[in-house]
């Protein structure tokens, strides 16, 4: 978030409401999909895909990551990279 002028904040609030609606809809969607008995691999991919979208929305708008200072990205970059390393290498073994 860059500015704190009232107009900007009101604009932010509008976005928050929309994000909330999207999150709720995606929650319903992911539960709905789970009732269609997809093959395991497909089910995992769909569920993780939806979860990734949802978490990206939270991170981007609620946590203001969509418009954050560079230094924060630099802190998060190694964390995300090593998170993936951990996941990929351990599951590969």
């Amino acid at each position: 978030m860059s500015g704190h002028t009232p107009e900007e904040i009101h604009h932010h609030v509008k976005i928050y409401i929309r994000v909330f609606a999207a999150l709720a809809a995606l929650t319903v969607l992911t539960v709905g999909v789970s009732y269609i008995k997809l093959p395991v691999m497909a089910a995992i991919l769909v569920a993780l895909f939806i979860a990734t979208i949802k978490s990206s929305l939270v991170a981007a708008f609620f946590m203001h990551l969509a418009n954050e200072k560079k230094i924060i990205y630099w802190i998060l970059l190694p964390a995300v990279a090593f998170f993936l390393v951990l996941l990929v290498l351990i599951s590969y073994s």
Partner: peptide, 24 residues
């Protein structure tokens, strides 16, 4: 610092984790 996160399993060569992992 960066590389130290991707070398850990050289402590585990004897665990039978497989040649691909060992090679990596």
């Amino acid at each position: 610092g960066v590389l130290s996160f991707v070398v850990w399993a050289h402590h585990m060569f004897l665990t039978g984790m497989g040649t691909t992992m060992s090679a990596f």
